Simulated scan of single mutants.
Amino acid sequence: MIGLWLFVGATFLEPSGGSFRSTAGSGLVVACLSGYDAYESREASAIVSDSDRG
């Protein structure tokens, strides 16, 4: 959520020049990394639940 807020907030708050690019870029990086982390944890959870079935 923070990554998306940084990305969208940069558009609405309209910071000047380099500040806009920095904020939007940071937001994209945080959003992508958190999405990847959520994907990996879902996959790991599926592997653990499969091994519990025996």
Rank of each mutant, 00 (worst) to 15 (best):
A38E: 15
G9T: 01
T23E: 11
G27P: 02
D37G: 13
Y39F: 15
D50Y: 10
S41F: 00
L6E: 04
S26D: 04
S34E: 08
M1L: 04
V30K: 00
P15F: 10
F7I: 00
V8A: 12
D52T: 07
T23W: 03
A10N: 07
G27E: 03
A24T: 13
Y39S: 08
I47W: 00
S22L: 15
G9H: 01
G3W: 00
S16L: 13
S41A: 10
W5A: 13
C32D: 08
M1G: 05
G18I: 12
R53C: 02
A46R: 09
S49A: 08
V29K: 00
A31L: 14
M1Q: 02
M1E: 09
Y39E: 04
A31S: 15
V30Y: 02
S22G: 14
G25Q: 07
I2W: 02
A46Y: 09
R53E: 08
S19R: 14
E40L: 13
A46C: 02
S26E: 10
R53V: 02
S22I: 14
L13I: 11
S49K: 11
L6V: 06
L28E: 01
D52S: 06
S49N: 14
E14C: 11
M1A: 08
G9E: 01
S41I: 09
C32L: 15
I2P: 07
A31R: 02
V48Y: 07
A46L: 08
V30Q: 02
P15T: 04
G25H: 01
D37Q: 15
L28R: 05
V48A: 07
V8D: 04
R53L: 12
S51F: 01
T23L: 14
M1C: 08
L33H: 03
A24W: 15
G9M: 00
A31D: 03
S51E: 01
I2E: 05
F7Q: 01
V48M: 06
S45I: 00
G9K: 00
T23G: 08
S49G: 04
G54Q: 10
R42F: 13
A46G: 11
G27H: 05
S51I: 08
S16C: 00
G17N: 09
D37L: 15
G25L: 09
W5P: 08
D52R: 05
W5M: 10
E40W: 12
G35T: 14
G27C: 12
L33A: 12
A24I: 11
G27S: 10
F7A: 12
V8S: 04
L33Y: 06
E43F: 00
T11E: 10
R53Q: 09
Y39M: 05
A44T: 07
G9C: 04
T23H: 11
C32F: 14
R21N: 13
G25C: 06
S26Y: 12
A38Y: 14
A10G: 15
S19L: 15
G9Y: 01
E40A: 14
G35C: 07
E40R: 13
A44F: 05
M1K: 03
S34P: 06
G18A: 12
F7H: 07
